[in-house]
């Protein structure tokens, strides 16, 4: 069987063009929109509204 040769990127190359996935950013924005913090009689309640 033939061997598979893959080129490993150096740490410097790996750090180039790094950014979080769009899905992650979208999830955070949706989470933020859904999160409601309600303050009632000195208590703080979190609620996720879907």
């Amino acid at each position: 069987m033939r061997k598979l040769y893959t080129k490993k990127l150096s740490k410097k190359d790996q750090l180039k063009d790094l950014e979080a996935r769009k899905e992650t950013v979208q999830f955070l924005l949706n989470y933020s929109k859904a999160l409601r913090v309600v303050k009632c009689r000195g208590f703080t309640f979190d609620a996720i509204l879907n």
Partner: peptide
Amino acid sequence: NETALSKLINRHHHRIYSFIFS
């Protein structure tokens, strides 16, 4: 204002993500 969060994330996500990945 939810758009403000979007702006903040877009402004800084590259730097923060790179820091974590490093």
